[in-house]
């Protein structure tokens, strides 16, 4: 399966899971909405250019927005993490490229600790920015902080569960294929 086809399938799957399962389950608490759809952006291949990352991020958010009827909210947050992603990857991956020939971010490709940091930074940015935009309309500061912390915690839990349940096959970038 080519990268393109695989990512399109992944996109559809993440959006459907987010809209029809995570947004629909009886919520655990009023502060917590579990989010996982943005894992699609975290999993995009390293080879995607920064321009394309921005465009893909924007439209991922926008598609989810049309389901949740909040045009712009998730789009803004996704765009932010799509913009920050290359910087974080640059810091966390080894500079020596001969060691490093995986195609997309994963615990195997980056080691568990750097990968966890990568996921954590982008998760906090995504939730922080999104809850901030919601908070501008309503709510108080304590609500804002609790909401960011709790949604971040539950999303991290979901992402690592997903990583452990569905280990992706390791694909190498090689000259031969």
């Amino acid at each position: 399966m080519s990268d393109l086809v695989r990512n399109i399938l992944r996109f559809a799957l993440f959006i459907l899971v987010q809209v029809y399962i995570l947004n629909k389950i009886p919520h655990l608490h009023r502060y917590i909405t579990p989010y996982i759809y943005y894992l699609f952006i975290l999993w995009l291949p390293f080879s995607v250019s920064r321009q394309w990352l921005l465009i893909i991020g924007f439209f991922t958010g926008l598609v989810l927005d049309y389901f949740t009827m909040t045009p712009g909210l998730h789009a803004a947050a996704c765009l932010l993490i799509a913009y920050v992603r290359p910087f974080v990857i640059n810091i966390l991956t080894p500079k020596d490229t001969s060691d490093f020939n995986y195609r997309e971010p994963s615990p195997k490709a980056m080691q568990w600790t750097p990968y966890a940091v990568y996921v954590f930074i982008l998760t906090v940015l995504h939730h922080g920015y999104m809850v901030f935009l919601q908070w501008l309309d309503v709510g108080n500061f304590l609500d804002f902080v609790i909401k960011v912390i709790s949604t971040t915690a539950i999303s991290m839990l979901l992402i690592f569960t997903a990583e452990l349940l569905f280990p992706r096959k390791l694909k190498f970038r090689t000259n031969t294929a």
């Binding site: 321009q51 924007f58 909040t70 712009g72 789009a75 765009l79 932010l80 913009y83 935009l133 309309d137």
Partner: peptide
């Protein structure tokens, strides 16, 4: 800084969607 400008532009578009929708409960493209 082309990437940064693209980021800013799309961010402005997203925020425009967000606020024009919430104010009037509708958006033309919806």
């Amino acid at each position: 800084y082309f990437t940064f400008f693209t980021f800013l532009l799309l961010q402005i578009v997203a925020l425009w969607f967000l606020y024009s929708y919430n104010k009037f409960h509708r958006a033309k493209f919806l």
